[in-house]
Write a protein that binds this DNA or RNA. Structure first.
Lengths: 128, 128
DNA sequence: CTAATATCAGTAATAGTTACTACTTTTGAA
DNA sequence: TTCAAAAGTAGTAACTATTACTGATATTAG
């Protein structure tokens, strides 16, 4: 894979790094457009996919039908608010041990797991 | 919600019950068509959504972009094979305790979690 | 039996994402 | 430095999974 430099990709990367939430492709598009007014949505998608493939960012799928992206590739868990839909980082240690637990009565090979938590976020639970 | 009886819905329910894997709407459609040759894909989707809403079946989202459906609504975890994409039930106890662990450094309210494991299934790991 | 209404088949519409195409940048070597 | 190969881009078309709409049909309570 022979990467070439691109201002658009830099801008996408930069935007993702300065956000602590986990924007969707569309949100990235809306914001990078402030710097590159005629960047294409296709370019955003292609670069997000590329960056995820080479491990620069990670793609988060929380079952809301939209992919979220995160510049923080260190292993960590996510919380999804059922009320407002926001995706929030959780501070807790990695549960690698559950892979072995799952492998006990299983004929294949378990390499990892994906876990996300759901409920009401701080904002939404104080509101109601 | 005032439900009326429908042969089509029965057939969808029956098909789901006789399958141990976790078919997608399209697979349900293909198979129910053997009994109802001109059932509509829209009907399949509408009934799967309805059945999931009233808790008769459960919708499984494993991040492959397609919804899977399961007539077994008892709480259990799933495994997804990275090779062939099949979704398999795992025999392991519920990890309700991880919700409390996650709640320790979190300001909101954690109501539950979704976990699925990935790797190579029995079939695919013996093949390679 | 019949009227109210849930459900249906068929089809159009939508959302998110990927693919295609002709043009533009980047980059490494001449 | 220049210049062409390769990677990237904007714009747009296409695709996939799903939902919404519409006029006809089936179910069921009274």
């Amino acid at each position: 894979m022979n990467l070439k430099h691109s201002k658009q990709r830099d801008s996408i990367m930069e935007f993702l790094r300065e956000r602590k939430d986990h924007p969707t492709a569309d949100v990235v598009y809306m914001n990078v457009r402030k710097t590159f007014p005629n960047i294409s949505l296709g370019t955003v998608y292609r670069n997000l996919t590329l960056l995820a493939d080479i491990g620069e960012i990670s793609r988060i799928r929380v079952g809301d039908g939209v992919d979220h992206f995160d510049a923080d590739t260190s292993p960590h868990y996510h919380f999804i608010c059922k009320e407002c839909g926001s995706v929030i980082d959780l501070e807790m240690e990695d549960m690698t041990d559950i892979n072995e637990t799952a492998n006990k009565n299983f004929s294949g090979l378990i390499e990892g797991h994906i876990t996300y938590f759901y409920g009401k976020c701080g904002n939404c639970s104080t509101k109601s």
